[in-house]
Design a protein around this nucleic acid. Structure first.
Lengths: 356, 356
DNA sequence: GCCAATCTTTTTAACGTTAAATCCCAGGAG
DNA sequence: CTCCTGGGATTTAACGTTAAAAAGATTGGC
């Protein structure tokens, strides 16, 4: 079906041009352009004839020419970050896939940025890219308070949206985010429902808005059930940090029986600590993570965690910039999505292991 | 340093054009173009003046205009695949990052494709993209015997290179690959050096050229040391399949004491099986994986595995298409890189756990 | 001091598209 | 019958770049 008649047109490079379609339909090139872009400027009868010719020749508008003429390339740029070895692949892979799918769906293409790490380098990369390619929009990830990138993009007047809230309470920023507070609350309530009363939290330092958000979810859930909230740690996001924090909380005089973590990486550190103490995840101590990284499903027992609705995130981000590009800047999109609790063995008391 | 003088030029959209530089330097636009692209066609003195003007105005050539004129966009396209939930993120993330870094380094940009799964959909996506954007080159991943994509791209005369060998012995294909045979051999020799004599292999079905390659590495190492090779399994790449295969090999009358796997996913399945039997990875049974997925470093004990030199792969792929674009088609690049054995606890006999 | 040969620079045209201006023609008002 | 109106088409010009052709400047030979 697809590849039966690949080379029907006589064009040299497989390119069919507007002029060729025009000739075929017996009209001017401009009329073809109009027929496609401003349907009501051309008589219905003519339009039909033109569309037939378009279909017949398999015409596709040349994006370079369009970009040149319109100063708009239908390209959306995104900068990847190198994945850190210690981290459980922060779902960049899936995010990128989802974002690209949504972009293509909406008639755009995703182009990747590259920059030295650090704000300055990233901003420079954006500017260079803008200078030479008339990028239509940018997608940012992991924005934080007083983000220079936001300031820069805004000062240039380029449409952009962010995966991650504006923590400055800046309503003019379009963002899509996942509700870490609700997610962590759900995880905490889940382990509480298993009968746990000493529920600790291992999260990130207070500078991290995201971490703060997640910690508050845990706090809320604990307070609502009159549970103590003395077992908490604020550490960097690494397996080793999680491991050490877990040991501390288990060495306590009234040790934790459940540990709610701000990331899968930390939760895996907890699992390692349990392993070292000969304790069984789920059976002896309940553990929950956050992100549903691939690892979460692969460890034994599986790690209970929160899955971000990443497809939705992608779709909404594209929709947000799409709207901005259409000139609708009066009411930037703010979308807060709910993560989904994925329950696995690490938080269930059921027997998971055969004793030797 | 970077953002101090962002808006120096008087241009409306921040775009500096060739004509503006020309005027500044007191020459024609063409001379500026020449000074940048054909340095020897312009007198040294003039060139100096022009370059000064270029630097002063911060001129960057407009890629859309170039693309239109030259039929070449300096874009390289790559199609992502959705990550399967069960698989330990097959390093797509890192690969993409490395590929993009190399592309930017070489003056290109990476653009992402999107297509329905399946060969036909992918080919159609390539053709559409080609039709409307004059992509310079394509990068393929996971090519296999009789790959339709290879045939299609070749028939269109587009430069492309593949991450993964041509298994048809087709020398005209430019590829970069990692030597799975050598890698698996190294892993096998490593466990043999720990004193293991019953070394099993869990790999993929014979249809998979990649799997076949890895299996042969194990076979070679075993034969060289006169070890039996009866313990082998060919299964799909999933944790569950690895788990079941491991159980079979441990239920054998002369059970395996070491298991060499074709992927981290399979190896994690083995770890789960051991866990179910109350056996300790490393101590009781040695395990090795393949890919050094993020998970490998995060499980307890860490998983011994093979790391693909992904940065190198990216660099060589870009170099390969770069060369093809320069018209040098007579001698397509074939690059076979060595993976690196990463030794972790899963293959070491040392005590890894504190008994309760 | 004149012509040819060479080196350097400018002019012209084109890549494919589209906004803006222009042209054309049927139908209605005066 | 002329003039105006306006929908519907076409022409013009421009987006920024570069290959090719043309023009201009410089040098050397005789």
């Amino acid at each position: 079906m697809v590849s039966q008649h690949t080379s029907r047109g006589p064009a040299p490079h497989g390119h069919v041009t507007l002029a060729q379609v025009a000739q075929r339909a017996g009209v001017s090139a401009q009329s073809v352009s109009n027929a496609l872009n401003n349907p009501d400027r051309v008589a219905p009868e003519t339009r039909k004839r033109i569309l037939a010719a378009v279909a017949e020749l398999g015409y596709e508008p040349n994006l370079s020419a369009r970009a040149l003429r319109n100063r708009s390339s239908s390209l959306i740029a995104f900068k990847m970050r190198p994945s850190r070895p210690d981290k459980a692949s922060l779902l960049m892979d899936d995010f990128l896939y989802a974002l690209n799918a949504a972009a293509v769906e909406a008639g755009y293409h995703l182009i990747l940025c590259h920059a030295e790490d650090g704000q300055a380098g990233e901003i420079k990369a954006y500017r260079d890219l803008l200078k030479k390619t008339s990028i239509d929009a940018f997608i940012l990830a992991e924005t934080h308070r007083n983000d220079d990138r936001v300031a820069a993009l805004r000062s240039w007047g380029v449409p952009f949206a962010s995966f991650g809230r504006s923590w400055d309470g800046d309503d003019s920023l379009a963002w899509v985010d996942v509700d870490g507070r609700a997610g962590t609350r759900a995880a905490t309530e889940h382990v509480a429902a298993q009968g746990h009363r000493r529920i600790g939290h291992i999260g990130w330092p207070a500078e991290s808005e995201l971490g703060q958000e997640r910690r508050e979810g845990w706090l809320e859930a604990c307070r609502q059930r009159d549970l103590e909230t003395d077992l908490q740690a604020a550490v960097v996001d690494s397996l080793e940090a999680g491991r050490q924090a877990a040991h501390r909380m288990l060495d306590s005089s009234r040790p934790a029986t459940a540990l709610v973590c701000a990331s899968d990486t930390l939760a895996l550190g907890v699992m390692r600590a349990l392993h070292e103490r000969g304790l069984r995840p789920g059976v002896d101590v309940a553990i929950t993570g956050y992100d549903d990284s691939p690892t979460a499903a692969l460890v034994s027992p599986g790690l209970t965690t929160l899955r971000q609705p990443i497809d939705e995130v992608g779709r909404h981000l594209i929709q947000a910039v799409d709207r901005l590009m259409a000139g609708d800047t009066r009411d930037p999109q703010h979308v807060l999505l709910e993560p989904e609790l994925i329950v696995r063995g690490s938080s269930l008391p059921g027997p998971r292991t055969r004793e030797p």
